[in-house]
Design a protein around this nucleic acid. Sequence first.
RNA 1: GGUCCUGUGGUGCAGUUUGGAGUGCACGCCGCCCUGUCAAGGCGGAGGCCGCGGGUUCAAAUCCCGUCAGGACCGCCA
Length: 594
Amino acid sequence: MMRTHYAGALRAEQIGQTVTVCGWVAHRRDHGGVVFIDLRDVEGMVQIVLDPSADGLEAAKRLRPEWVLRVTGAVRARPDGTVNLDLITGEVEIGAVVLEILAEAEPPPFPIDEREGAANVDDNLRLKYRYLDLRRPRMARNLRLRHQMVSAIRRTMDDQGFTEVETPTLTRSTPEGARDFLVPSRLQPHLFYALPQSPQLFKQLLMVAGLDRYYQVARCWRDEDLRADRQLDFTQLDLEMSFVDQDDVMTAVELAVRAGISAVRGVELSEFPRITWDEAMSRFGSDKPDMRFGMELHDVSGVFAATGFNAFKDKAVLAIGVPGRGDASRSQLDGWTDRAKALGAAGLVWMRVRGPVSGDGAPEGSVAGLESPVAKFCSADELAALRGAVGVAEGDLVLVIADADRRKAQQVLGHLRLDLGKPERIDEPLALLWVTDFPLFEAIGADGRPVPAHHPFTQAHEADWDILEADPLAVRSQAYDLVINGIELGSGSVRIHQRERQQRVLSLLGIGPELAQDRFGFLLDAFRYGAPPHAGFAFGIDRLAMVLAGETSLREVIAFPKTQSGGDPLTEAPAAVDAEQLAALSIALRPLKK
RNA sequence: GGUCCUGUGGUGCAGUUUGGAGUGCACGCCGCCCUGUCAAGGCGGAGGCCGCGGGUUCAAAUCCCGUCAGGACCGCCA
């Protein structure tokens, strides 16, 4: 047996025992006659003392940070006045009798401890030496937090009667909408597997198979550009249930998410509120609203219905009030205007609330107490009505976006709302909510076909099937998203389990019977044999862990993540392969375009 | 595909706006001293392709162009 105790787990109870611990040298403090070593292992740190008479004293003087040691000695209480309350093990120390060097170490390329000024190491360097980065408290803590969260979620799924089933990672393309990662087949040259964007079709087949309640902690792949909250490969809690409605799924998911949060935060959240997609867009300009703060959108189109101001005339005119930002500088205002334009708006109208609607106190040039470059184009009645609708007070700022396209105006203003109002911390407080009644289709594509908002297996509202072909954009779906602090955690839907309806939707999407049969005929075939009504959900394990860890990047909760350009500085993936490997796959590389 | 930020001894930064000697801070590293420290302390020392390439200039870490890498965002990701 290499050790008897974890170094970081020693407490006053062990005083008097002789123990053997193993770990890494965190610090060495050499006082000449006596040497202190902080020995770190997975549980924490403990102080090793080499007294002037100790056999290991000479060896201890050679020690450097990150050397690996095995130390045997007696746990003893620290002398009066030397207890270290900053250390959990700070009441005790080990008087070393045997000190064994298991491995020497070169100085690490960056500090392992996260003392002030050394916490922010370049991402590239951290990832190149990820095994050292993972020794640091932040990452060690995050990986454990993630495990505890997933562990609690798994227990909750088990308690609810779910069966975990693994599905293939070498499969064929699923119609999720993102680019597939392709894997060439050696046994069948010129054919390709695709890595799943989700186990969508397999879990529906498991419902046909009568499994009733399936879940999986599933690895998924999407070949799209990365973001702070998007990785090429990521993990979902994927689930599907038979003979259920939307509420049943939401309840099951909510239990799992709340258990995960409880496990790492120790808080029991109450039931998540639900709002419809239309309400989310109208009030927050986003289908994943951050509900931790107000600054809701106000539709003031009616106020300007007959305005003489052309920028507002015959447009959807939306406004938000920004509390206390009436003192924003011109360059800040210009910056937000640039942001609005970058997001596709024609411009941004700002108004400083400088005084009362009428009477004294309003500065020169203001109308209805509003100071703005465009105030002179609007009537006092219009601006007074605007103030009333937005509900601002003196010292506030009003931002107005006008656009012929109401959705675009909502989205732009929704972004500005986040830019100006989002709380600094990503994880406090926690505000989760359901967004329901997504439209079945989000737009009409360039080919004249509707574009699915979720995926083509999503059930429409029962009452809306009549207008599927006639007015597709008005069709509501039985699809629902879960949102945490303005981040989309996951989405799900009631599925179409009727073969005829499925073919209607596919045909509307321009996927004819032959193409449908070729791409997912196996699902349509399965529906011939008695498909139960079913519904499901999937949410991002990485994203939930990220928020609960208080991190703003997925990289901080993934052991070996990719950079923004999709590379791994540690393994240097992706990499070229041997000509022989390509030949075995019957693949020839074409020259890169300049 | 696009916009923006960053790149300076091993690490984290300042210096770049207004061109003038590789100047500075903290940590780390190496050596010596030191018996109660805990981010120990004291004394001494080493360490630089200012990401890379080109241009402007008498002179470039600093200005310009390109490029690479990392990051944030838009497009994309149902």
